[in-house]
Write a protein that binds this DNA or RNA. Structure first.
Lengths: 350, 350
DNA sequence: TTTAGCACTCTACGCGGTAGAGTGCCAATC
DNA sequence: GATTGGCACTCTACCGCGTAGAGTGCTAAA
């Protein structure tokens, strides 16, 4: 066999043709034939030559033919190569950046900000936007308050980070009066106000270990109540989705059964959260193309994400969900910029 | 003209045939022909006679033919008559009721309850469930607390109804110290704890009017701060939807454009809320069939709702959204029972 | 290595014919 | 007068067929 089977890496011509093919397909949504590609490539090659190259690309798994006599469309692998090696992104127009910035900076409060960011992403891209709620590992305790409920239950109200209010019901091993609870609260506020919540938890554990035997009544109560209040908080992982209905307009997703699977995944949240978690781990822009994510519902769907940070700490992920045939060159900078702006807005608002 | 045009009311035979026709169509989803109907009616009528009756029913607007040579299907008006006058509901199996009850009673907290109810409705009916958040006009004030923020803003934390925590940021006309705010809180707690929030609001307004001129500094602060805290609360109207994806499996809704409109309506919430509001006003079971609701997106879709109550006060609406071709005889008792159970669960949980 | 040419394949579309379901009407019947 | 059998008619769904158009793969020549 004198001919090498599949070139280990695509030569420049093949790369360029792949690039043009993907761009065309993203623009028109139609399979691209050899003649159209030879014209569009600007390379002065006959369609026959282009056909040869396309045969190589197909063998390499970058493109495929929906049927014998149609043009070719990119495979997931083709999109991947396109995104990794061929893509040239147009940076966002400064005036567009400003519009986004204004909309985000106007919004007060964490909850509203996240929702606005998601809506903005979906609005600007005409795809679905997704933003995870920020999770701060560094929450400064501001104030704590207790109210007795019936049946040895106590309502604990925590104010952290300036103006975030959390509340939870804890079960105590004995009945506490209003005054006793007030005393515990006073002690905690005096001792720990302004401190990091995780530090508070650790300090309490140490105290408990150190003074196990010789504790006065107050300290006993403090430890008993506070250990529950500051116990491991189940990270309420969640995300805000916007503009899902945009996805219904794409012909490649017009199969109702496919749509149902995708929307089911949105509702169940588990798979999506897992995917977003993977993005959180890897700093910066992340792209999942079609089946790469490993979830069946994501067939034909891509996810472009970026992490966003508050004071250098990565606290969340945001991104865009759309058909694999999306305008990556536009979407990527939009996601990138929105992530930075959201981080900034969160920074100033607290 | 010797023949009357359209009988003002359907005679018994026509009613029975309409009933059987609707039941058949709900079961099979196929247009019902005269022969099939004459067999199914159990009335020993020839198909020709049935044809005559069907012609009358069509003229009366109760049924229509999708095309010349298909059977007939019910119109919205046909479903309406069916639901109002012909329907016999099978009451729910006691064991099924028990299953629902257990699931709801297990769930703690308002938020979780509402979500569970919605999921239950969707799960049992295989349609979409919808539950509005309960809005209580009677909220007993339990405790109030203030924390100063920067820029003359104050974080107010309200505990109402045993363990519901609300918080809001108010803007004051001057800077308050922590102690001043504490004094205001102490006064409010002493004076109004256990009282209805609306009563508190009214009382404050009266005080303000009565002592406009001769107020001491404390009272001035109290009025200034509290009037904002207890000001008209924008009723945060909202609902929890579950199982929307179930709707995607119905062939009559398989048109993607129709689905998109419906889901858009779910997301925008405005129209749905308006519809649910109308249900709230009318106590008990309400049914909107297809275009009756007046919203384009509801073409081919029905909504079955019931109000639910806490201590005799109607506080919310819950229901099921599905194709007009839904099993009303099953759905109606399910909605009815779930509403009662949710009311009961809310009652005991607080 | 590139290219022109050509046979081949597949889809989309329109046409015609048929089977099947169901209707509407009319005249006969109870 | 209500009911019924009969019959012509209509419409859909389906199948087979032929055609136009797009695009391919292969081969032989440049």
């Amino acid at each position: 066999m004198s001919e090498r089977s599949v070139p280990p890496i695509l030569n420049e011509r093949a790369q360029h043709l792949l690039k043009v093919l993907v761009q065309r397909f993203i623009r028109d949504g139609q399979p691209v034939g050899s003649r159209a590609l030879s014209r569009a490539s600007g390379m002065d090659l006959s369609s026959a030559t282009v056909r040869n190259v396309m045969a190589d690309l197909e063998e390499g798994g970058f493109i495929r033919a929906p049927h014998t006599s149609a043009g070719r469309i990119p495979t997931d692998k083709g999109y991947r190569f396109f995104v990794d090696s061929l893509l040239t992104v147009n940076p966002l127009n400064p005036s567009e950046i400003d519009r986004l910035k204004v909309r985000l900076d106007d919004e007060a409060g964490t909850e509203g900000l996240v929702e606005t960011a998601s809506t903005l992403l979906s609005g600007v891209t005409h795809l679905a936007g997704v933003v995870t709620l920020p999770r701060r590992n560094h929450s400064r305790l501001r104030h704590v308050e207790f109210l007795p409920l019936s049946d040895r239950r106590v309502l604990a109200i925590l104010v952290v980070n300036e103006k975030e209010v959390q509340n939870r019901v804890i079960h105590t091993d004995r009945e506490y009066s209003r005054d006793q609870l007030q005393a515990v609260a006073n002690y905690l506020n005096a001792q720990f106000s302004g401190r990091d919540v995780t530090t508070v938890r650790e300090t309490l554990l140490e105290e408990m270990a150190a003074h196990r035997d010789d504790m006065n009544e107050l300290m006993d109560s403090v430890i008993s109540v506070a250990s529950q209040v500051f116990g491991e908080q189940e990270q309420c992982e969640d995300y805000v989705l916007a503009g899902e209905t945009n996805l219904m307009t794409f012909t490649e997703l017009s199969d109702v059964e496919k749509l149902r699977e995708l929307f089911q995944a949105f509702n169940e949240k588990r798979d999506i959260l897992h995917l977003l978690d993977r993005c959180l781990a890897a700093d910066g822009i992340q792209i999942f193309i079609g089946q790469e994510s490993g979830y069946r519902a994501f067939d034909g769907v891509s996810l472009v994400t970026s992490t966003y940070s508050v004071e250098k700490d990565v606290v969340g992920v945001l991104g865009v969900i759309g058909p694999t045939r999306m305008a990556y060159d536009r979407v990527i900078p939009i996601v990138d910029v929105t992530a930075k702006l959201l981080g900034h807005a969160l920074n100033t608002s607290q």
